[in-house]
Design a protein around this nucleic acid. Structure first.
Lengths: 204, 204
DNA sequence: GCAGAGGTAGACAGTTCTGTCTACATTGAA
DNA sequence: TTCAATGTAGACAGAACTGTCTACCTCTGC
């Protein structure tokens, strides 16, 4: 298994191999379910090497979250840029659809981590929150600049989070798109209200 | 610790004590993080007794999810009934607010379980999905009966799920209500579109 | 009065987990 | 050349986890 990854990855330095392997395992199976032994085995690295780079599993978790944040957000921005510029919030629908349809889709790593560790890893909670804040800021760029911009961006983000967890539950089920249609409906009416508020501002 | 619970619970039969204790631990700390030894210690029960009632931890997880489903849904229905009947979807806002403000709030047990066990406990996924389906059906009773009823109920449910995970992230932070304001905004416009569609049906 | 259900107490096996440590190999730069 | 960094291989300790098993107790219904 993971032949593609192994051959692709094997020439990279050990720290990167560990981080990429941990990312895949943590995201797919959950953090607690992925033991250190499994990570080092799949990364093709010795235990001493692992503990040289990451003094504890918690350090690896931190690195995983930070790496995931960067990777997801840059994908998100880029995917949005490929959409038409005048779609407003509706640009989000095909972007989310692309993500949800990825066979490796397992929901939002940050929501999942917050669910897995509650208060027991408080720094994770903070990272999750700042991840969501950055997402809101990106969404805000899709909206006209006015006093309701951030309010609408926040609402859109909450709707997206809802669609994310719904798609996660439905991902096992064949042919299920209720998450996406619900999201599209909400974003559509949010979008209209954003246009309305722009118009009302113009007419003032 | 848990004096109140212990004195309150100690006279109940063992199976119930185990289930209630497991509920509190699983919900608060996560399922994987709560070992059997911990459950039996806090339930004040011997190991043999535990394994007489629940042949394996997975059986306990199943019982936990089913108990949680019943308990949450009956609370949800009852809380909605205490709201004004003519509020439509807006009845959901104070109900969710009450839940989010509970100091024991830790998000939706089903979303959290789905996040913790991915494909590795497939029955859990199904239970989560049917839990959400039941929630949608309750929400639908708040809406006028027409062809868009279920579509709107689904959209409202997705928005609620989004608010649930947001409130979970924000629960640590003092004074944060963005989850609730975003939810209120979405439900408000969904509600308006539901009223509009009722009117348009009447005028047909 | 006795059988069986339900309970306690806790030792035990077997696994898995995190983290440490020893011994040795390779390589690049001072 | 020699030193330090980076790597491999894997034994080991100590804890925690699930699940089994033995031995004994207590109550209730027949």
């Amino acid at each position: 298994m993971n032949l593609k990854q192994t051959t692709f990855i094997s020439d990279k330095p050990a720290r990167e191999r560990i981080l990429l392997t941990a990312h895949d395992l943590f995201y797919r199976d959950g953090i607690r379910a992925s033991g250190i032994d499994r990570v080092i085995a799949e990364a093709g690295v010795s235990k001493a090497t692992f503990y040289r780079h990451f003094p504890s599993k918690n350090e690896l978790i931190r690195a995983f979250l930070s790496y995931r944040h960067e990777r997801w957000l840059s994908w998100f921005k880029q995917a949005l840029q490929h959409q038409g510029a005048d779609l407003g919030l509706m640009s989000l629908v095909p972007v989310m659809e692309e993500w949800f349809n990825n066979p490796l889709y397992r929901g939002c790593a940050f929501i999942n981590t917050a669910a897995e560790f509650g208060d027991s890893l408080p720094e994770a909670l903070e990272l999750c929150l700042s991840h969501k804040q950055d997402m809101v800021n990106v969404i805000a760029t899709l909206l006209p600049v006015n006093e309701s911009q951030m309010i609408l961006a926040n609402a859109a983000a909450v709707a997206i989070d809802g669609a994310i967890v719904r798609a996660q539950l439905e991902s096992q089920i064949i042919q299920s798109k209720t998450a996406l249609t619900a999201l599209a409906l909400i974003l559509d009416i949010l979008n209209q209200s954003s246009i309305l508020s722009s118009l009302s501002k113009l007419s003032k």
